[in-house]
Amino acid sequence: MNKKRIILAIVIVLVLVGGYFGVNAYVESGKYVTTEDAKVQGDLRAIGSLSAGKLVEWKYKEGDSFAKGDVLGIVETVPARGNTPASTVEITAAEGGTVIQSAAVQNQTVAPGAALAMSADLDALYITANLQETEVNSVKVGNKVTIQIDAFKGETFTGHIDKIGLGTNSSFSLLGSSNTSGNFTKVIQRIPVKIALDGTRGKRLIPGLNATVRIEK
């Protein structure tokens, strides 16, 4: 086989391979919406004291779970008058969860409303995926979703669309952007989609993990 025939054969193989992947990508795009702009999320709750004083007891560290109504800590309040004895106030869990971050230090002075720890219900995590505005009309609540999480290579999770955002991510920015130059560049906006997990397959998911989702149209 001469050199020209070898080159021709290579070109034909490349065209066939490229055509296969091109057709496959076209078929996939017709059936699914896929994005890598997705993360594991949870409803985070700040834990703090309703009263000012000294944190005389703190019972939970990061990773500890608690139930609704559990006493997480005790604050000794500052007497309003010199001859008034100090009293104690319990910091009680409004909902069950797990401490995922703690800044509480025993005997520190605390202010009312200041966060001593953050918690989340690790049994109620979900996925937030940000879809392009040109894609969001292709999906609806209830659509099935296949999920891959970077921390668990080779594992596939399933879920379904629970909620589609009513505004783009940029619309929730505290500071609006202004254009004073007179130039304008259109930027594709992204809309958050909440995906409920069917289960965790025994894996311990935590908020913030990166994910890739494929949503059936």
Rank of each mutant, 00 (worst) to 15 (best):
residue 112 P to Q: 15
residue 113 G to F: 05
residue 65 S to Q: 01
residue 91 I to L: 09
residue 111 A to W: 11
residue 111 A to L: 14
residue 87 S to K: 14
residue 68 K to H: 01
residue 69 G to W: 02
residue 88 T to R: 08
residue 107 N to S: 12
residue 93 A to G: 09
residue 67 A to S: 14
residue 67 A to H: 06
residue 88 T to Q: 12
residue 105 V to F: 15
residue 86 A to S: 13
residue 60 Y to K: 03
residue 96 G to E: 01
residue 99 V to S: 03
residue 77 T to P: 05
residue 78 V to Q: 14
residue 113 G to R: 11
residue 83 N to W: 15
residue 67 A to D: 07
residue 82 G to Q: 12
residue 75 V to H: 08
residue 75 V to I: 10
residue 113 G to Y: 13
residue 111 A to S: 14
residue 84 T to L: 12
residue 105 V to T: 09
residue 96 G to Y: 03
residue 87 S to W: 08
residue 74 I to Y: 00
residue 89 V to F: 13
residue 62 E to Y: 05
residue 70 D to F: 00
residue 109 T to Y: 15
residue 89 V to C: 10
residue 87 S to A: 15
residue 73 G to K: 01
residue 66 F to S: 08
residue 60 Y to C: 01
residue 82 G to T: 10
residue 92 T to Y: 01
residue 63 G to H: 09
residue 67 A to Q: 03
residue 95 E to D: 15
residue 93 A to M: 01
residue 74 I to C: 05
residue 95 E to Q: 12
residue 92 T to I: 14
residue 72 L to D: 06
residue 77 T to W: 06
residue 71 V to M: 04
residue 105 V to A: 07
residue 78 V to D: 13
residue 88 T to W: 07
residue 104 A to C: 06
residue 71 V to D: 05
residue 65 S to E: 01
residue 77 T to L: 08
residue 97 G to F: 00
residue 103 A to C: 10
residue 108 Q to D: 14
residue 102 S to A: 09
residue 104 A to F: 03
residue 87 S to V: 15
residue 68 K to V: 02
residue 101 Q to D: 13
residue 60 Y to H: 01
residue 64 D to Y: 09
residue 77 T to A: 06
residue 115 A to V: 07
residue 73 G to A: 07
residue 86 A to P: 05
residue 67 A to K: 08
residue 98 T to A: 08
residue 92 T to A: 07
residue 113 G to K: 10
residue 75 V to P: 03
residue 81 R to W: 10
residue 93 A to V: 02
residue 85 P to D: 13
residue 87 S to F: 10
residue 113 G to C: 11
residue 99 V to I: 15
residue 103 A to Q: 13
residue 71 V to W: 00
residue 111 A to Y: 09
residue 99 V to N: 03
residue 93 A to E: 01
residue 71 V to A: 09
residue 97 G to T: 04
residue 91 I to R: 06
residue 72 L to I: 15
residue 71 V to H: 04
residue 80 A to R: 03
residue 98 T to D: 07
residue 60 Y to T: 00
residue 73 G to T: 12
residue 117 A to V: 04
residue 85 P to E: 11
residue 116 L to N: 05
residue 73 G to R: 00
residue 74 I to E: 04
residue 105 V to M: 12
residue 83 N to I: 05
residue 101 Q to M: 13
residue 73 G to F: 01
residue 115 A to E: 09
residue 71 V to I: 10
residue 113 G to H: 08
residue 62 E to Q: 10
residue 60 Y to E: 00
residue 90 E to F: 04
residue 110 V to M: 13
residue 73 G to Q: 01
residue 116 L to V: 05
residue 95 E to I: 09
residue 108 Q to I: 10
residue 96 G to L: 02
residue 71 V to S: 09
residue 115 A to Y: 03
residue 84 T to D: 14
residue 60 Y to D: 00
residue 85 P to R: 09
residue 60 Y to S: 00
residue 98 T to M: 04
residue 85 P to H: 05
residue 115 A to C: 11
residue 113 G to T: 10
residue 116 L to R: 02
residue 111 A to D: 11
residue 104 A to Y: 06
residue 80 A to S: 12
residue 63 G to R: 03
residue 61 K to D: 08
residue 80 A to G: 14
residue 103 A to M: 15
